[in-house]
C-alpha cells in the first residue's frame, strides 16, 4: 500500500501534463474556426473547454480517449467490427501464435549454438543482422510473398511476430545455458556425464531465470510485430487496422484508443509471464 501514493502522484502529473498539452496543441484549430466564422475566438475557460472536446483534435484529452476505450470495449458486441475486443483479439491471437513460434525457434537456435561449433560461429551475426532491418520495410514483403503461396490472415502476421520475438529468446537462452560456472561443469565431468545429461540436469534449469526475462521482452516485440503485420493488408482487422483507418480518416481519438488498447494487452501479457516466472521459480526453489 505504500506504493500507492508515489504511483498516484506520477499518474496525476502525467494526466495534468497531458491536459495542458491538449490545450496548447488544439488551440490553433479553435482560433482558425473562429476567424473563418468571423467571430471573436473563445478565451479563458471556454477556450480550455473547446480544446478538450473537439471531434478530431491534434491531441485528444484523456477523458476522450478513456471514453472511446470504454465505448468500443464494453459498449459493443465483441463480434462487431467496431468493437476493440474484436480487433484486440485478432491482434492478440497473431501475437500469441508468433510468440510461441519465436520462442521455440529461439530456444532451438540457442541449443544449436551451444552444441554446434559452426552454429556458434555463424548464427549470432545473422540473428543480429535480422534485427537491424526495419520491420516496417520487411513486413509488406513477407505478407506479399506468403500471400502468393496462399497464406493469408493469421499466419503471415504471426511470422512477423516470430521474426521479432525469437531474438531476445536466442540471446537470453545462450547466456542462460552458458551460465553454469566451470566448477559445475567439472563436477559433471567427474561423473562422466554426457552432454545430454549436462543439458537436462544443469544447463536447462540454470537458464530458467534468463528465459523468463527474454520471454517478457519477446512478448512485447511480438505484439509490435503483429500490429505492423496488420498495416500492409489494408486495414482489415486488428489493432493495427484501427490505427491505420484512424489515420486515414483523421480519427485521432480512435488512434489513441487503439494505442492504449495495445499497451494494455502488452502489459497484461507481460504480467502473466511474470506470474508464471514467480510460480515456476518458487516451485524450483530458486525464489526466496
Amino acid at each position: 500500500m505504500r506504493h500507492v501514493l508515489p504511483v498516484l502522484t506520477v499518474l496525476i502529473a502525467i494526466i495534468a501534463l497531458w491536459y495542458g498539452a491538449a490545450v496548447g496543441l488544439n488551440r490553433a484549430w479553435v482560433y482558425d474556426q473562429a476567424s473563418r466564422a468571423g467571430v471573436e475566438p473563445a478565451s479563458g475557460l471556454a477556450l480550455v473547454a473547446e480544446t478538450w472536446n473537439q471531434e478530431r483534435p491534434v491531441l485528444p484529452a484523456p477523458h476522450q480517449v478513456a471514453g472511446e476505450l470504454v465505448k468500443t470495449t464494453f459498449g459493443m458486441a465483441p463480434t462487431s467490427k467496431r468493437s476493440l475486443v474484436y480487433h484486440g483479439w485478432v491482434t492478440l491471437s497473431a501475437t500469441l501464435l508468433g510468440f510461441v513460434m519465436g520462442t521455440v525457434l529461439g530456444i532451438l537456435l540457442a541449443v544449436g549454438i551451444l552444441h554446434n561449433r559452426a552454429m556458434d560461429m555463424s548464427v549470432m551475426p545473422w540473428a543480429i543482422a535480422s534485427q537491424t532491418i526495419p520491420i516496417l520495410a520487411i513486413a509488406p514483403m513477407i505478407i506479399v510473398v506468403l500471400n502468393s503461396v496462399g497464406l493469408q490472415g493469421l499466419v503471415p502476421k504471426a511470422i512477423i511476430s516470430a521474426y521479432l520475438s525469437f531474438f531476445p529468446v536466442v540471446v537470453g537462452m545462450v547466456k542462460g545455458l552458458r551460465s553454469p560456472d566451470q566448477m559445475q561443469l567439472d563436477l559433471l565431468k567427474t561423473y562422466n556425464a554426457s552432454a545430454g545429461a549436462a543439458f537436462w540436469k544443469l544447463r536447462l534449469p540454470a537458464s530458467m531465470p534468463y528465459l523468463f526475462t527474454s520471454l517478457k521482452v519477446g512478448m512485447a516485440a511480438s505484439l509490435v510485430g503483429a500490429i505492423v503485420g496488420e498495416l500492409p493488408t489494408g486495414a482489415v482487422a486488428g489493432l493495427g487496422a484501427r490505427l491505420l483507418s484512424g489515420s486515414y480518416y483523421g480519427q485521432t481519438v480512435q488512434i489513441w484508443a487503439a494505442l492504449f488498447a495495445a499497451a494494455i494487452v502488452a502489459a497484461g501479457m507481460v504480467m502473466l509471464i511474470g506470474l508464471m516466472e514467480r510460480r515456476t521459480l518458487r516451485k524450483m526453489g530458486m525464489a526466496r
Partner: peptide, 23 residues
C-alpha cells in the same frame, strides 16, 4: 570442490541423487 556447488533448484536429497541419476 571449494564451494559446495549444490543446485539451488534441487533439494539436498535431489542434489545427492544427481550423480546417481547420471550413473
Amino acid at each position: 570442490f571449494q564451494a559446495a556447488g549444490l543446485y539451488p533448484w534441487r533439494t539436498i536429497a535431489g542434489n545427492i541423487k544427481l550423480p546417481l541419476e547420471i550413473m
